[in-house]
Nucleic acid binder design. Structure first.
Length: 104
DNA sequence: ATATTGACTTGGC
DNA sequence: TGCCAAGCCAATA
């Protein structure tokens, strides 16, 4: 990375590599980006993505295996929809990280 | 420059 | 499982 690389850029860089049908937690995303302890920042960063972003922000869920949006909210539904479309199965509003977690 | 707010996590019941 | 208190770090107000 260049001397001007920002933390947000590091997050985006990793985000773009998550393959279809796989997911990572905010904390894992931060770690893979070389920013351990920045789980919360990962969320802050995703929040700034434009709604039409091509980046797979929907492949990021919390450590509990759940979508970090209030159930039923527009964002929640879009995320769940996209994940299911990629073959990710939900068991009681929860994703089994053991099966879908991405490991580079 | 200080205070509040989150798309978070972990450890303890 | 579930709820809670702490700890965390940048964006916002």
């Amino acid at each position: 990375m260049t001397p001007t690389t920002t933390k947000a850029q590091q997050i985006w860089q990793v985000l773009g590599q998550i393959p279809c049908g796989k997911v990572v937690s905010y904390g894992q995303l931060a770690e893979l980006a070389g920013l351990p302890g920045y789980a919360r920042f990962a969320g802050t960063t995703l929040r700034q993505l434009p709604n039409d972003s091509a980046l797979p922000w929907h492949r990021v869920i919390n450590a509990s295996g759940r979508i970090s949006f209030p159930e039923g909210s527009p964002k929640f539904m879009v995320q769940k929809q996209r994940l299911q479309a990629e073959g990710v199965l939900f068991a009681n509003a929860r994703i089994l990280m053991a099966n879908y977690r991405w490991q580079p």
